[in-house]
Nucleic acid binder design. Sequence first.
DNA 1: TGAAATTAAATCGTGCGCGATTAAATAGGG
DNA 2: CCCTATTTAATCGCGCACGATTTAATTTCA
Lengths: 155, 155
Amino acid sequence: MSNTPPYAPDAPALSLKLDDQLCFALYSATNALKKMYRPMLDRLGLTYPQYLVMMVLWERDGMTVSEIGEKLFLDSATLTPLLKRLEAQGILERKRAAEDERVVRVSLTAKGKALKDDAASVPGEAVTATGCTPDELTALRDALKRLRTDLMKTG
Amino acid sequence: MSNTPPYAPDAPALSLKLDDQLCFALYSATNALKKMYRPMLDRLGLTYPQYLVMMVLWERDGMTVSEIGEKLFLDSATLTPLLKRLEAQGILERKRAAEDERVVRVSLTAKGKALKDDAASVPGEAVTATGCTPDELTALRDALKRLRTDLMKTG
DNA sequence: TGAAATTAAATCGTGCGCGATTAAATAGGG
DNA sequence: CCCTATTTAATCGCGCACGATTTAATTTCA
């Protein structure tokens, strides 16, 4: 009686068409987002993930690698090389904590702190590029946060 | 009189806090999405971008590299190595068109076509993982498509 | 206290994305 | 017809993401 196909007894038989997929809309919007940010961040000498790390550190300096990772949902395999590149640019310093040598604490240099002023115009420019109203942006952001939480639940 | 700060005369002074950012919600949701898909796609022997290419070819076989690129908003620098890996797996074939030797046409093998049946349950499982209703998914998808279009406009 | 378990970061390998360049084929204009 | 411009794919280099493993430091608890 059910029209559920044999290959997926518990899931609805949904489309395999590209343009129907939420996942592709998400994926392609993120790719577009990164491209949109590039010229702005090039002026700061940052990549997009580096910009995210800087936002975390501008909020609270001296975080450990794992603390940064918890904020960004990234692990040390991604962060360690990224942080080393920022260190090589003189934007931050990595130092093992004296009280626990397993931990690496990351602190901004003067140059890294100063970069915050240069970045201040970035969010506004980005909002303009989205062509959305502030209310739309807020709604979309919160919907994506909920989606992220749900996606990480099962995984 | 204006409270617009001196560093961004034409843009609103928006937050640099991570959790306020639409961009981070988008970025982190996409990372979570890819992780969620991995175990499902591992069974098919595909990565997530490879799965997208397959969806394009299941809809219309024999597309050129640029046509696939237009659908996915990717260029040959990304697609050529990806397609070579799928070719090495015997999932598709790449052949220069006789009528125009610049063009490479991509066609599915029997194995590639058969993979569509194995993939049929993927969208349903993915929907379940999102924890969203179909209406929410449709609304979010369409909002992201609009966002993507806007982001690609200026860039 | 000393062996085992846990934790933190680093390392390794693979596969994207993409800016930039290159190579080759075709189209178009004089 | 040739020379230039355009188009298509491939190539190169770099920086992520991340699964998996490794190394080293700390904690646990028998």
